[in-house]
Design a protein around this nucleic acid. Sequence first.
DNA 1: TACGTTGTCGTCAACGTTGTCAGCCAGACG
DNA 2: CGTCTGGCTGACAACGTTGACGACAACGTA
Lengths: 330, 330
Amino acid sequence: MPAKLRDVAQRAGVSIKTVSRVVNNQGEISEATRQRVLKAIAELRYRPSKVARALVTQHTDTIGLVLGDITNPFFPEVARGVLDVAEPRGYNVFLCNSDGELPRETRILESLLDHGVDGIIIFPTFELEPALRRLAGPERPVVVVNRPYDLPGVSAVMIHTRRGARLAVEHLIAQGHTAIAMLAGQSHEIAHLARVRGYREALCEHGLPVREEWIVGGVPIQKRGRESALALLTRYPEITAIFAYNDLLALGAIEACRELGRRVPDDCAIVGFDDIPLASVVNPALTTVRVDKYELGRQCMNRLFEMLAHPDQTFEPLWVDVELVVRTSA
Amino acid sequence: MPAKLRDVAQRAGVSIKTVSRVVNNQGEISEATRQRVLKAIAELRYRPSKVARALVTQHTDTIGLVLGDITNPFFPEVARGVLDVAEPRGYNVFLCNSDGELPRETRILESLLDHGVDGIIIFPTFELEPALRRLAGPERPVVVVNRPYDLPGVSAVMIHTRRGARLAVEHLIAQGHTAIAMLAGQSHEIAHLARVRGYREALCEHGLPVREEWIVGGVPIQKRGRESALALLTRYPEITAIFAYNDLLALGAIEACRELGRRVPDDCAIVGFDDIPLASVVNPALTTVRVDKYELGRQCMNRLFEMLAHPDQTFEPLWVDVELVVRTSA
DNA sequence: TACGTTGTCGTCAACGTTGTCAGCCAGACG
DNA sequence: CGTCTGGCTGACAACGTTGACGACAACGTA
């Protein structure tokens, strides 16, 4: 039973349309009636219904944020960045976890469309092209993180992942390491590819051989990091440094070293990736490649707003930089 | 230009209403026309517009989740719990950060209402009563965490905070400690009150004196934890144990001990609260009171669904339990 | 034959806004 | 004194659904 346009109109003794005009302050209205309407609005605590408005204007002031899992320490800051630029413009954002599962991702996207979101920001884990073709367009822009698509209504925000990987490995090399293994991610993830590529390039450029059996992939969680590192270091004791696909894996590697009686960084140096909050507080503090997650979120949302404002323009990918932060683990 | 009800109707050669009926499968429809309609729906990839539907049914299949800051490690798991029960029922959830600022909280609530959410889950930091009176009701239920309100349409989910605090302090006492200080939170927070109460009770019941100057409050972040612990331990070297309002403060206390050359737990035992992911990986691993954050989120959402299903019923507060997890810091 | 029933289906008016267009009343102008 | 502007306002029809009815067969039943 909140007040409706009609109630306000009645109370102010004007037409519905007139009230609508002062609410959206468009058109020309005499100061007198504007004041009367404003008064009525205040008295009735009227607030326009976004859903009714959405029906006619075809936009809901709503966007969808689809990420792997908010529980992954990488994402909360991203979400925060997105929210912080969305909120001042009156936009609300739907949060969705895809868990990196394709059917789930699809369901979520459909659901978001059903709700009429104006746009979507997505951290994809799978090939999105078919889905994007269906749902994206000038009227419903999509920002995809870390994967460039040349599709109308789609724009990319890219992280300098490969560069980050090179930074990490070069740091290890600069410390004198020559036997550097990699705890990698899952092969279908684009981030995995980029990081492995950076790793290879750095080794090559410094004349170091790439030993395929020293690159071991899998799900990027701490447990697996420990296991893989354990296996790796036992089998190839000559390894003196590990570059991990992400901080969680690096943490696992530290655990493994501790169990094997290897001191970090002296007996085995470890570099992570992402700089999640954990990285700085853990002991030894993790040397890692920082990506500014908050800024990443902000950039995504800004880009989405740009696209919303200029529906027919095409946009170049946006690159967000990374930096190596040297702590004690390497 | 997605397909509308009318398009489907035209294609199937039936009325709009008939299509509506098969979509919502209500009313009786002959198998023949149902099949024809289904076929048309599939061919046109028709999906009903939730916003149009919302206009008439007055519910949007949407809820708002208002929490302090998703970046606070306490919240992501909660959010995950909420989402995991909301999603299978076709509900989407708006995520909002209040930052514990009253004007922000108010703005967010208004915005949520404008969007027509069916219900709200909120982790309050301030007195909510006036706001709740305005926005809550049988038609728009609100679940409030950790603060009981006896208002129509409002239901509480409570954490056994006080009990947790007692558990923590009793553990310390059982270890033989008698000089136990407390790193507290901010006095306006209800969680602070409950934890301090638990601390006092445990001391009293074991015949230990409560020394007011050993209870020091402030913002519950790591930096302040370090500072307060530093001050406390310098001024009162006889203190042998610290109970912290939350894990972040406990982490700060560990830092302080390290700086003062006090070994944890031998020279100074430390117990935290919340069991954030950090707690188990830090060194020394934190003994703390775990609240099952994921379960908390689930309970909130379940309760909200119950309220949605039975608008006029009133609901007793729901209590979620806590448990002491003993690691190495105490 | 006339009259309920039951199973199907359609018509019409909402829901709370905004776009489009037309109308009205001053005042300026010829 | 008529006519034409320009500022201001209102009527009306959308937007895409659903709810409340009503209609109309086919089928017994009295």
